[in-house]
Design a protein around this nucleic acid. Structure first.
Lengths: 236, 236
DNA sequence: GTCTATATAACGATAGAC
DNA sequence: GTCTATCGTTATATAGAC
């Protein structure tokens, strides 16, 4: 085989979906402009980046509930009153994080390009893409997972639906391979859940991967191989 | 094969390791008697059960940090002052939960009986046993996982060491099977981590299993089959 | 009377909000 | 910078058991 019809490198993903830098913060501004008193995007983006980045650091160190807005004010260099020009309330800040991640993930998952690929490459495109997104937006995923108790019931439900939707996307791919005879049809729902769990490990168990020196390319290959093995497909 | 040399049913596990009811609360009393002003175990156990059970409920609903001791006082029916006869502080309560789980898990993992089993049965005994323990002490695991930010650095480190120790236990079992030629030796460290993650799903993704109607016996079989498949061992 | 367990009420600190 | 609510915590008082 000469070349994948679909470029599955991390660099290619980064260029297709710009999930970092100014484009990201402009999308944050867009999603939450109704909660903010600041009207000028050019002024907002710098402070939004500070607010969200410092929130991730503080929440990661002591938890979102335990973090105070005075901590956030100190770390961002923005006054207490100034913060309230960017957020409706402390809870709205957590809600904004969840909503930005959800809409971003929704956009990436709505990509129909991978659906035309044959089952094995399609599976590979989904697994690699999701893993790259987990890696790039690690802070956002980690926050939403560990702080889900602080989110509104609607947002918690939306997050569960998002995970079920991803599971179903995997399951459909498995079934496409069953139709072509490449995969065997055995407990596909459980297998899809397990594959999702493996991908989530990349942001949930970062301490372990870091300690063991596992690189993302190696882990992506491992997830693909393990999933294919469970599907009875013995890969190259 | 007529019969397993090792009874791997949930009932057998419950009888071997009594992790519920009065024996559990007596162990809680024992682990934390130095933090309590109550001297009489018979009086303590009833209130300890109320305090820990209500803490799990409240922390599950809104998070441990967001839960107030007045909430706990109301739900348990114990006055504010009374609570402080049982706990040294709010943080000590979280610490006690982590410590009880850690010492209990340590005792179960120290069981040397499974080490004499041949690789496949040994793997089965470990997976089933851990899954049963995850199931019975679900509230404790779930609390420790989601509230780990609120624990002391020592306890967080101890929890990580515990997980690494479990991974290593799995890895040793894999390698025992490699020696006998039953398993192939491919990325055993990653595979052990993945198996641990599958077991953790049982308390992390209860909502999903419940929605899909997955029973613990089915899931245990799935985890065993998937792990054996990754080891190149095609099971019965 | 003494020890243990529970209840009341208030203190000081700090939170989110504006 | 201020206001108000609420937090964790504790000093103190009370009640029952032997």
């Amino acid at each position: 085989m000469d070349q994948w019809p679909h470029d599955i490198s991390l660099d290619a993903f980064r260029k297709t979906w710009v999930l970092e830098g100014e484009p990201l913060w402009l999308r944050v501004f867009d999603v939450h402009r109704d909660k903010m008193q600041i009207k000028n995007p050019q002024i907002a983006v710098g402070n939004l980046e500070k607010i969200f980045t410092c929130t991730f650091q503080l929440a990661n160190a002591k938890g979102f509930q335990a973090m105070s807005l005075r901590d956030l004010s100190r770390d961002t260099g923005i006054s207490m009153g100034g913060l309230y020009a960017y957020i409706g309330s402390k809870d709205d800040l957590a809600g904004a994080i969840a909503e930005v991640l959800r809409t971003t993930l929704d956009a990436v998952l709505s990509d129909q390009a991978v659906l035309s690929l044959p089952p094995v490459q399609r599976l590979q495109a989904i697994l690699y893409g999701d893993l790259y997104m987990n890696d790039i937006m690690h802070s956002w995923y980690y926050f939403c997972y560990l702080e889900s108790k602080g989110l509104s019931p609607e947002q918690r439900e939306a997050a569960m639906q998002m995970e079920l939707k991803f599971d179903e996307r995997l399951r459909n791919t498995f079934e496409a391979g069953v139709v072509t005879g490449e995969f065997k049809a055995d407990r596909l729902t459980l297998l899809a859940s397990n594959t999702t769990a493996m991908l989530q490990q990349w942001y949930l168990k970062r301490w372990k991967f870091s300690r063991q020196g596992t690189r993302i390319e190696d882990y992506a290959q491992f997830v693909l191989d393990t999933t294919l093995s469970s599907l009875g497909h013995h890969a190259v």
